[in-house]
Simulated scan of single mutants.
Amino acid sequence: MRGRMNWEDLWPLLVNGTLETLYMVGLAAFFTILIGLPVGVLLFISRSNGLAPMPKVNAILGALINIGRSLPFIVLLIALIPFTRLLIGTTLGSTAAVVPVTIGAFPFFARLTESALDEVDYGRIEAILSMGGNIWHVIGKALLPEALPTLLAAITLTVVMLIGFTSMAGVIGGGGLGDLAIRYGYQRFNDQVMAGTVIILVAMVQGVQMTGERLVRRLAHRR
């Protein structure tokens, strides 16, 4: 594989790497939102002046989130190898890579969720509470609906970050375009593979960014 490759050899590698990357990003995005959204809501409502004040819980959870955000992802990848092996049974492949990618991303999304909820007009919250609504009514009828455009922008930013994370997962054999770039591009000095993976990754990021911004504008305009 050293040197130049025929298009017939390069094309299947790029297609397979792209599909693996899309699989990892999609699955990791699902779990990141599934975990990060409720954690972000809990951070918001558990403040000392929040809807359900729990200062100790908020402090502990906030500290854990800050630690998760401060760790370099490459260090987290290596540190989570035993946990990934315990959970998945292997540390190789695209499915295994979803574990560290999700753990690395959900603290970031949780903070974005908390910030998005901060922008909700407190008058809407007070109106629901004055009509006898409880905390679940506030979350379901005021916080999440009103913060939806900002949350969508946060999801867009998170997915862009996930694309980068899945690429770095190639360092530990995570599959996808990152693994392809390392094994065939860097280690075998193949400029074609490197160029191909870079072009596809840039196209993915731009596609996600443009789609997300368009959806946010459309949703904000309707409001």
Results as ranks from 00 to 15, higher is better:
R4I: 15
D9Q: 03
W11A: 11
L14D: 00
T18Q: 01
E20I: 11
T21E: 00
L27H: 02
V39F: 07
G40K: 00
G40R: 00
V41C: 09
L43S: 02
F44T: 10
S48C: 05
M54D: 11
A59E: 05
G62V: 00
A63P: 01
I67V: 06
L76W: 01
L77R: 08
P82E: 10
R85A: 08
S94A: 05
S94H: 04
A97D: 12
V98A: 04
F106H: 11
A116Q: 02
V120L: 13
D121I: 01
G123I: 10
I128H: 04
L129M: 13
M131G: 15
I139M: 14
A142G: 14
A142S: 07
L144G: 11
L144H: 14
P145W: 13
E146W: 13
T150I: 07
T156M: 01
L157T: 12
V159S: 10
L162A: 06
I163V: 12
I163P: 02
T166G: 06
T166Q: 09
G185S: 04
D191M: 11
M194E: 07
G196I: 02
G196H: 02
G196N: 03
T197K: 01
I199T: 06
I200T: 00
V202K: 00
A203I: 05
M204D: 00
Q206S: 09
V208F: 11
V208Q: 05
G212K: 05
G212C: 09
L215A: 09
L215Y: 04
R217T: 13
L219S: 15
A220R: 06
H221D: 07
H221E: 14
